[in-house]
Structure formats: C-alpha cells, structure tokens
Design a protein around this nucleic acid. Structure first.
Lengths: 330, 330
DNA sequence: CTGTTAGCGCTTTCAC
DNA sequence: GTGAAAGCGCTAACAG
C-alpha cells in the first residue's frame, strides 16, 4: 500500500520507515534518537515497530554530516610496541566501545607529519582525540582536529587543554629512596627517547631523587624502551657496575638483566635492578623486576569520564599517582 | 569581491573554493579528485591554488555520504593481549596508513554479539574488514558489513570470501619431527581456546604429526594462550613429565617453563619445550623457546595487496607457510 | 506534539 | 570541458 516501497537491495532509509509507520521522517528521527525528543508514545511505538520490521539501521555518515559529529575516538600513539601498551590499550578499547563509540588507532611512528594522517581523514571529525604520542603540543593538536575535545596524555598540555598526567615523580621518589635504604650509593640510568616530554620529566625525577638521597648517577645511557636497547645499554654499564641500575622501562631492565647475566652479574646479589611500568603481561618469573607502576584502571576510568563529558572534565586535569612496586630484583 | 565570502570560523567548503577560483563546484570536485577527471589544466591550477590559499580540506563525511565508501578499514580482533599481537598489529597499522586509510580497531572480546559493535556504527561503511576474531563465519560477516570486502584471517572463510591462511601444519610437522629426531617418545600438549577454528586446526595438526612419527600424546590441557594459563597447565604435566611439552603459544610455554622450573625441571635437559608464534618482541634470553613462526611481513604484504585491490585478490586465497624455529629449549 | 523545509558538503549525471 | 541540478540520508529549525 506504500506509494514507494523500499528499494530492493538497498538498505532502508528513514524515509522508508516513515512511510511504513505513516509518519513524517522527522518523527522517525526523533523516535530513534537516543536523547528524549518530543514524540507521542503511540507514534514512537509505530516507528520502532516499522524500523524493526524493515531492519532499519541509521547511516552514521548522514548523521555525521548533519550533526557534524561522529562516534569515533582517535587514539594517537607513536607505536604499538611495548608490553605496557598491551596492558593499557586492551582495556581502553573496551572502555571506548562501552560508550558506544569506536576507536581509530593512529600510529604516528617517528613522523613529524601528523597532518598527513589527519587532513582529509575522518580523524578530523572525531568526537574526541586521545593523544599519547608526543608528536605535537596541545595547540597544534587542537588546530589539527575539527573537535576541541583533545585529551593530552603526553605531558604536552596547555592551559586550554584537558589532560591526564601520570605522576611519575612520586613513584620514582619511592623507588630511589628504597634503593638508598638498601645501601645503594651509585647508580646508572638507562633512558628512553629523551625527546619525549614524559621521558624528560622521568629522567629529571630520577636525577632529583638521586641527588636528594645522595646516590651518585655514574652514567645515563639512551635507549628506546625496548629489550634490545637494554642489552646494548648494559655494555656501558658493565665496565664499572654501579650498586643499582634504574631503567625507564621494564623491557630495557630485562635486557640489562640478561646482558649483565652473561657476565654472571645478577640482581639482587650483584646489583639492584629497577624497571618502570610494572607491566602485568610482562611479569614473568625470570624477570621479577622491581618497578614503578600505577593503577591503569584509574587511568582508563579517567579517560572514560573525559569522553562521557569533555566539557565537565576538571580544568585542573587529573593526576594518577604512581607507586614503587617491590619485586625480586631490588 | 566574492558575493559570499567563506564564513568566518567555518572550514571552507568546495563552494568557497569554487567561488574563489571562479568555477563551478563540480569542477572543484573533479580537480581535487585523485582519479583523473576531465578538467582543463588551466582551471585545475586555479582550483588547486584557491584551495591551498583557503586551506581547504575535504569533508570525508560528505564524500562518504555521496560515494557510499569511506577510507576506513575495520580490524576485528578478540583481544589485544598477546605478545604476538604487538608483532603483527604495529606493522599492520603502518601498512593500512600507508594506503591513506585508517584503522578502526574493534575488540570483540568474548561477546558473541558482534552486531552491537557494527550496527549504527561507521564499521558498517568501511572500505574493508579484516577479521582476525573467530566470532563469526564469512557469511555472517558479509551480512554485517555494508561492504563485501571482507578478508577472513580466522579460518572461517567460505567459497565467496577472500582469505589468508597461515599454514600451520607445515611448521608443526617440522617441529614434531624435530622432537622425534631428538628422541622424544611422549609429549603433552597445552592448547588455547579450542572453540577457535584456527586453534582446532592447530591441535589437529599436532595430533596427526605426533601419530605420524610415533610420539604418544599423554595429555592435552586447555589454556587461553596466556603466561598464567601456562603456569596452571604445568600442574597437570608435572605429575608425569613427558619427554616434550608442545604449547600453542609462546606465552604458555613460558609459563610452563617457569612452573616446571620451580621443581627443578628445566628444558632442554629434563624435557624439551616448544612454543608457538615465535614472537620477536618476546624472545627474551631467559625464555629462548623453540617455536613455530612465519614471515609476518608476508602476511602484512598479503593484506596490503588485498586492500589495494580486493576484487583482484586471488580467489584461491593466500597461504603463508610456517616453519620450525629451533632455539634453546628443544 | 507534528510535519514541512532547508540544509550538512560532496559527487555525479546530464545536458550544453 | 563545463556547470546546473539532483541527490546521498539525516537532523534542526520553524511554523502549525
């Protein structure tokens, strides 16, 4: 009885539903909207029924075009490479999806040209962007996104941007004091890419903490967070083994442990070894490395709160405390 | 001098560019299209210049609505949890982005209700879907996506679907023969979720290979691929230690190694230990586990070829061979 | 509460 | 080669 039946082979549109339910398209739009909009209960039911019968599903592209927003969250990272990434991104994906949104994972790599990933791409129109990569500061990122909903997790926030910071200073302080308490007088520091703000802060925290308790930092060796770079870094350290080795990732600590192990230097007997991240998925018996960790579920919860209501997110940002986690090596 | 200047605070549209260049909007669309469309060279240059000056960028939502396609690739996984995931997804993301597309990572978890992640979501309109998760067979997946471009990597393809298969039988055969060659007469098998087709095939391959060379399988213990489940599985095995333990993931093998190590049973002296996946990022000196691996870059290259030209992708699918990788434990 | 109307920004006929 | 016009499917604004 419909003037224009839904075309075969095509997905039904809001117009098809409207026709089937005998109402105007706008009514269908309202009835199907998640937010409560004025529709009489009776028509709403007719619409819902018709939609179900036709197997109607909204076209997000059309809605996005009309509303200028889209249920997509951009997650901007440098790489997906470290054990600690698994611990974080799996629950994060779950959290994003629990909001009915989906995550578009943008891997920047070492490129500076983040623009290329964003211009002309959907990222431009995402509901929010979570910036883990340290490629750009808050201002740049805001300019790059159509959305102002940018959450900085890379330490490069400014006054206008939302941010969550993992307060590493606290955990590092604990760790260093712990080492001092065990008689450590000298140490080596194995670092990641110093160009990252987060890493820079981390290194600074180690220096200050060591100075504060009177531990001499004999050397600082640059790595890239990986196991392999830990192995390499050990070469520098082996010459004059300090009382302790501090590494800014667990993976590097594992590398240091194995490289020094080849010369029969083992923690905690011959030196104390400390990692960073306290990865769950990497806490293997053979590498029971003391580390600095934080409550990842608290971080995910913070991100979730932001995504739920970016406007209401604390202007002061959120700080996640870290703590020293004593394990076998120190 | 323009009748209607580009509105302040709004991103310029194709109409703004058209006005600035003194041509029709359709010309702008053609000039800016990556595929060669009829536009005089002179106008094309005017358009390009105007676009650059205005800082014009295409709105992908509008284009998507008009063309019914979008530069997004859905990657459907169960979890992001294993070490081997890092080895695969990092280069895969890079590859997808190198095509000018972006990846939307859909984590299904153990839900059967994949629909919820797709209906009303952008996933519906993606250029292609890469299915690693074993939640659904090829037919279901095609029905769920607006696109027919579904690449099955989960072993659940059918005659109509594209597929890439990692041929695990070959590597497992090699591995088992290697064990036999080292005098193994009995073995235990530690498996992942048997409900997965891939895992089912893997288990079958071990059984057949063992039968073929005359190795008795004393036990089969179910795990979930994780280190922790390897630890648990070891309890079953410890009672009557076989000559070899075959695990269907490296992580489980690491767990078995540590659990048996607590009873001073170490590979390769007390038993031979074999993992699966040959993860790069997890090849730590303390866990130098013999394993089955494959060329991940070949897999990524295959996926890339599919994404470039889904229509032309071999109807026969692609098989990636695996091979035994001898390391310290067997 | 309801329906009409006018877009959102782009691509694509289809005449010229 | 060019441009007008008609959508793509949806939502928002505005009368009724």
């Amino acid at each position: 009885m419909t003037a224009k039946p839904p075309r075969e082979g095509k997905r039904p549109t809001i117009a098809d539903v409207a026709r089937a339910a005998g109402v105007a398209p706008a009514i269908v739009s309202r009835a199907l909207s998640p937010s409560r909009r004025p529709v009489s209960l009776e028509k709403k039911e007719r619409v819902l029924k018709a939609a179900a019968e036709l197997g109607y599903h909204q076209n997000p592209l059309a809605r996005g075009l009309a509303t200028k927003s889209i249920d997509l969250v951009a997650v901007i990272i440098n790489y997906l490479s470290d054990l600690s990434d698994l611990d974080l991104f799996d629950p994060l994906l779950d959290a994003i999806q629990s909001l009915g949104k989906q995550a578009i994972l943008i891997r920047v790599g070492r490129t500076k040209r983040i623009d290329d990933f964003l211009r002309n791409s959907l990222s431009y129109h995402v509901h929010a962007a979570l910036v883990f990569s340290d490629f750009a500061d808050a201002g740049e990122v805001r300019a790059l996104f159509h959305s102002d909903n940018v959450l900085m997790l890379n330490g490069r926030s400014d006054a206008e941007s939302a941010r969550i910071r993992v307060d590493e200073e606290s955990g590092i302080g604990e760790l260093v004091r712990h080492a001092r308490g065990r008689g450590v007088g000298s140490a080596a520091l194995v670092t990641g890419r110093a160009s990252s703000l987060v890493e820079e802060a981390r290194i600074g925290a180690y220096r200050r903490a060591c100075a504060a308790v009177g531990i001499r930092l004999l050397s600082e060796t640059g790595g890239d967070y990986s196991y392999g770079s830990g192995i390499k870094a050990a070469a520098t350290i082996a010459a004059a083994l300090p009382d302790a080795v501090f590494c800014t990732s667990d993976s590097m600590a594992m590398g240091v442990m194995d490289a020094l192990g080849r010369e029969n230097r083992r923690p905690p007997a011959d030196y104390l070894l400390y990692g960073f991240d306290a990865v769950e998925k990497g806490n293997f018996a053979a590498y029971d490395i003391s580390s600095v960790g934080f409550d990842r579920s608290a971080l995910v919860a913070g991100i979730l709160a932001y995504l739920r209501a970016p406007e209401e997110f604390s202007a002061a940002g959120l700080d996640i405390p870290t703590r020293f986690i004593a394990r076998g090596t120190g």
